[in-house]
Design a protein around this nucleic acid. Structure first.
Lengths: 170, 170
DNA sequence: TAAATTGTTCATTTTTTCTTGAACAGGGTG
DNA sequence: CACCCTGTTCAAGAAAAAATGAACAATTTA
């Protein structure tokens, strides 16, 4: 029984190889940049380096993570389209694999995380604009109206530009 | 002395108008999306709606925020180029105003937050690649090498695409 | 030079977010 | 039906992040 991490990983269910640790670490940082919990990065990272599809309990064992975290993490990753469940004959458990097409990952992230917040921001802005129309014509009112217009322009810009980003990935 | 928020804000140093609260709220959400603390959004938001440049203690009073938070928040915002200190004749204190050009804000965010992490990721990846070259030629080694190549391509893509984003804002 | 003013730093406290683990629901299977 | 297997949910605990406030520079004023 190997106790130090080997370079290959011939034993799914056991200690992570140093390469696996490295890749997982990579995704943990990446995912933090995007404001998501570490567990998400761990799960995706392990699936990304794993040739075989892994069931939930394999993830728990190899990552040393509670069933609850793994379940919730997988749920989120599936919502993004970053992980898919595959059927494994003769096994009742779901097996998971990583989606590795960058374009899809970005699209999923946009759809699930960015768009909703953008929409929420726009609703908020609409409410602000109606407040703005009640402002006085004093210098301060003028100025604040101007700032609200600027916010409108920003909002419009992001509606235009962000979709292009997804498009640029092929 | 008005106790409920008036629509205009004739009294810097005192209660926020409901418009001001709305704008600040807007920026607090925005800033959370970017993974920054609420205080950053509060400070920027208030400066954004304020016609006059505000000194540190005005921010503390109006936002009900400690001097420490305000000081640290301003420091970060200045690093981004999101806030600038302006000279006010006959006043020893720094006075701050919001930079409102979207292009500059995005550029500052890229420079201070995105680029450093991207660079860090690339260093990490380089280390991974050298680990990868020691992998066996078994199926699992082959597969993992392939995944490392994919990571390389992702990394390259982001180096190409992200700068374009700043460029697209005029 | 002493006192006052302005702003920064950083250990501590507070708040927020994430993880855990136990209870539970929904199937299968004998 | 009773039992087991898989996965989900959610209250409670643990960990991480942010805010506070007091001590400390650095500068200015008297």
């Amino acid at each position: 029984m190997p106790d130090e991490a080997p370079l290959d990983s011939p034993s799914p269910g056991f200690a992570l190889s140093s390469l696996e640790v490295g890749v997982i670490d990579f995704f943990v940082s990446a995912v933090k940049v995007l404001g998501m919990p570490k567990s998400i990065g761990e799960i995706y990272g392990l699936l990304f380096v794993s040739h075989e599809a892994l069931p939930l309990d394999a993830l728990c064992q190899r990552l040393n993570m509670s069933k609850g975290s793994a379940s919730q993490g997988l749920k989120l990753l599936r919502a993004f389209g970053a992980v898919r469940a595959t059927y494994q004959p003769g096994d009742r458990r779901d097996h998971f694999t990583a989606e590795v097409e960058l374009k899809r990952l970005v699209a999923g992230f946009m759809r699930e995380q960015i768009q909703p917040r953008l929409t929420h921001g726009e609703e908020r802005l609409t409410r602000l604009l109606s407040l703005g129309s009640e402002l006085s014509d004093q210098a301060s009112g003028q100025f604040q109206r101007q700032r609200l217009r600027k916010l409108e322009r920003w909002s419009q810009r992001s509606r235009e530009v962000l979709p292009l980003l997804s498009g640029m990935l092929e």
